[in-house]
Write a protein that binds this DNA or RNA. Structure first.
Lengths: 209, 209
DNA sequence: TTTTCATTTGACTGATCGGTCAACTCAGGC
DNA sequence: GCCTGAGTTGACCGATCAGTCAAATGAAAA
C-alpha cells in the first residue's frame, strides 16, 4: 500500500495514451509498465489480462469524458448549439492530441473497437456500449430540435446513430489523412442529416452565442 | 519455379483475408504462411517485410475490386442509381463476408489504416490513396447529378469526401455492432447529404431499375 | 548437357510476447 | 509487538514473434 492505488491509475492512463497513439497490438504489457514506472507483477496484480486492462482503460477514459459531454449537451443549451458545440469539442480534442503527439489519433474507443471487435468480445461489447451512450446525447438534442420545430419530424434514435456514424467516419478520415481540417466538415454534415435548412448551414460558420 | 508465382498470389490472398477477419497485429507471418501452405523463406523471398506484404495485399485487393466499381459507377448509369448501386454493393460485400466468416468485418482498407496509420507511413499512404481513388467515383456521380439538376449546386469533391466518411462510419458501426442491418441506412444518409429531395428518399426503397 | 536463376525448404536466431510466482515491503488493526 | 493482507519486486516460463540463411530444386535457356 505504498502509494495508495495511483499505480493502478497510472497504468490506466498510460495504457489509454499508448493505445490511442499507437494500437492495441503494437503496445505490449512491458511498454505500458515501463512508461508507467510499474513492474509487471503490479500490472497483473490489478488486471487479470492485457485485454481486461483495455476494457478498464476504456471505462476510465469514458468516466473522464462524461463531464464535458454533460456540459456540452446540457438541456440549458439550445439543441442545435449543443450539436455545434459537440463538433467543436471533437475538433478541439483532436487538436489537443495533435499537439501532444504530433498526429491526428482519431477516436480511441472506436480504434480499439475496429481493431479488436472481431477477436475480443469483451472489448467489442464495451466499445459498443460507449457508442450507445454517446448516441443518447445526440438523440436528445435531435429530439429537442424537433420539438422546437427547428428540424422536421424524424426517427431521432436512428438519426442519432447516422450522425454518430458520420462523426466516426470523419475522425477515421482525419486520422488516415493526418489532417485536422476535415473535421470542420462535421457540423454542416450532421446539420444536413437532420434537415436543418441549407441557408442556415451556409451562414453562421461556427458557434453563434 | 515450381508453380509459377501462385505462391505469391496465395500469400497475398491469405494475408488480406486473415487481416480483414482479424487485424494486422493479431496475424503473424507464421499464420499467413501456414494458411497459405508456404514456408517462411518463400514469404521473405517475395516480400521484404510483413508491412510490405500488407501494402501489396491492399494493392492486390484494390485491383480485384476495381472492375466492380467501374461497372457500378459506369457513366451509362443514371448518377443517383450509381450511388444507390454502390450502397447495395457495400451491403452485399459485407453480407458475403458475414457468410464466409460469420461476422461483419468492415472495410479492410480502413481497418488497416485505422490500426497502423500512426505507426507505419507506407500503409497510411496506401490506405489514403485507396480512399482518394474511391472518392473519385463518388465525386463523378455527384457532379453528374448536379449537371442533370437532380441535386443542388455544390462542391462535389468535398461532398464526395463527406459521403465517403459516412460510408466508413457506417461500416465501422456495423463491424462493432456486428450488425448488417444498419448498412441499409447508408443510401438515405448519402442522398440527404447531397440534397436529394426528402420525398424521393422516403419512397423507392432500394434500386428502381 | 550444362548452366542459370527464380523459387523452395526447413532449420535457425535473438528478441519479445503475455503471463506466473514466491518472496518481500510496510501501513493499520489487534 | 505481532499479524494480516494489499501492494511491490524481479526473476522466470514457454510460446511466439519477425526475420535470416545456406542448401536444395527444377524449369528454361545455352
Amino acid at each position: 500500500m505504498k502509494t495508495e492505488c495511483d499505480t493502478k491509475q497510472k497504468l490506466l492512463d498510460t495504457a489509454m495514451r499508448l493505445i490511442w497513439e499507437q494500437s492495441y497490438g503494437a503496445v505490449s504489457v512491458d511498454h505500458i509498465c515501463e512508461r508507467a514506472s510499474a513492474k509487471k507483477g503490479s500490472f497483473y496484480h490489478f488486471f487479470p489480462s492485457k485485454s481486461d486492462l483495455a476494457v478498464a482503460a476504456i471505462d476510465d477514459h469514458w468516466r473522464k469524458l462524461r463531464p464535458d459531454l454533460d456540459r456540452i449537451f446540457s438541456p440549458q443549451t439550445p439543441p442545435l448549439e449543443r450539436l455545434a458545440g459537440y463538433c467543436e469539442f471533437v475538433y478541439e480534442q483532436q487538436k489537443q492530441q495533435m499537439q501532444r503527439f504530433g498526429r491526428v489519433c482519431g477516436c480511441a474507443f472506436t480504434s480499439l473497437g475496429s481493431e479488436l471487435s472481431t477477436q475480443d468480445e469483451k472489448i467489442r461489447k464495451k466499445s459498443l456500449q460507449i457508442m450507445e451512450w454517446r448516441c443518447k446525447y445526440l438523440a436528445a438534442a435531435i429530439r429537442d430540435a424537433v420539438r422546437e420545430g427547428l428540424v422536421p419530424e424524424q426517427d431521432c434514435d436512428a438519426k442519432a446513430r447516422d450522425l454518430y456514424g458520420s462523426v466516426l467516419g470523419v475522425l477515421l478520415q482525419a486520422k488516415i489523412e493526418n489532417n485536422l481540417a476535415i473535421i470542420r466538415h462535421l457540423k454542416p454534415t450532421i446539420f444536413r442529416l437532420i434537415g436543418v435548412p441549407e441557408k442556415e448551414i451556409a451562414g453562421a460558420p461556427s458557434l453563434h452565442s
